[in-house]
Each structure stands twice: as C-alpha cells, then as structure tokens.
Amino acid sequence: MGEVTETVTETPRVRTLVLDVPGWTGHRAGQHVDVRLTAEDGYQAERSYSLASAPGEPPALTVERLDDGELSPYLVDEVVRGDRFELRGPIGGYFVWDHDGSTEPLFLVAGGSGVVPLMAMLRHRRAVGSTVPAKLLYSSRSLDDVIYRDELDRLGAEVVQTLTREQPPGWGGYGRRVDVDMLREVSYPPDESPRVFVCGPTNFVEAVAEGLVALGHRPGRIRTERFGGT
C-alpha cells in the first residue's frame, strides 16, 4: 500500500502524487509501478504509472487524466493527502538508465506524459552530478500542457521543445510534430553511440524510432516505452 503524502498540480490534466510506501527499497530511473484500485463491489482495475522521482527520493507518480480512463480521473482529480491505494513495484529492468560510469550521451525523446520516466533519468543524472551529455526532445500540444515546465531549465541538460498545436507569441522552439529533420538537428550523431530512450503514445514512439533508425541509429540502442488506451 502507498499513502499519498503530497500532491503537485503540474498542468490542468496532470498531477504528481508523492507517496510513502512502507518497505520501499528504492527504484531505478525509468521504472514504473502498477496501481490497483478496488471498487466497493470488488471490481478491480490496474494500470501502470511511471516513477517521476530520482532514485533515492520518495516514489512519486505523475499521472495524466484520460477522460475515458478508469483510474486516472480518480488519481488526478480526487485523491487527497492521506489516501492509500494498492501498488506493486518498482517494476522493469529494460527501460532504465543507471549512473554506471559510462560516458555515452543520453538522448531522450518524450511525447506528452511520456516525459515522466525520462524526467526520472534527468533528475537522477543531476542528483549524482553525472557529466554524461544529455538532451531531451520534448513534444507537447501547447505550453499549458508542458509538464515540469519550471524545472526543465534547471536540469543541467539541453532541453529542446516542440509545441504541436499551439505556440505562444515569440515561441523559440519547434512548432510541429517530431519528424526526421528535427531528429537530425537535435539528436547526437549515431557515431557518438548515444543511449536513446523514447516514451510516448504508440504512434509517436513508432515515428521517432523509425526516424532514428533512418538516420543510422542502431535499433538495439533505442529503447522504447509505448503507452496507449485507458
């Protein structure tokens, strides 16, 4: 069971829940947990949510409300401090980045709330004082949808943003969906052997992964995490 100790409103649709989980033994950057809620009639629903906090910090989930979702409207709109729910984790040893002494640059590509596990990696990198070059390419619909907006400047990593639907006056970033040209301009060249993590909706991840392979990145260097549905 996890108990909510703090909530942070990130955007109108996204909230972070900081948790106290008795027996929590720590997590790795990029891992997720499965949250299970049980209704009064016994109906159970389970969904996976990425951990946003750096290893060593209390587990924090950043959840986006899906209007037809079974769990996310509750987690984003209704949960208050002191509420408890069942969770399992941390889970996953594949989509993770550890500070392990390697010097390969880190290239992270996020679509929407796909930024959450990548944020855990960047927070981890900052917390341990890693000098590995790191770059985040982050696609959102509009400025209001940008999660962790104030923190992006304080990560000590290069952050390149694109706003696909609406750009404010004077916007200095990109204003279209991620495409091969953008990836060519932003990514580390393949001969620098970057470690690449891509997270977002399925079609976003497909487009980015295909684009990177077309630019000469080895498929085995690209790790993806798709999310979809409710």
Partner: peptide, 24 residues
C-alpha cells in the same frame, strides 16, 4: 490494434517468473 512494449507487463511477468525478466 496498437501494441505496447514488453516492459509494460513487467508486473505480470514478475508474478509468473518470480523476478524481473524485462532485461532477459
């Protein structure tokens, strides 16, 4: 039909195999 990645079922897999196998 859209698909997810194997890491999304890490919890189910650890139920079945007793450990994390997403990097196997």
């Amino acid at each position: 039909m859209i698909h997810l990645d194997g890491n999304s079922i890490g919890g189910l897999l650890s139920d079945v195999f007793g450990r994390d196998v997403t990097d196997a």
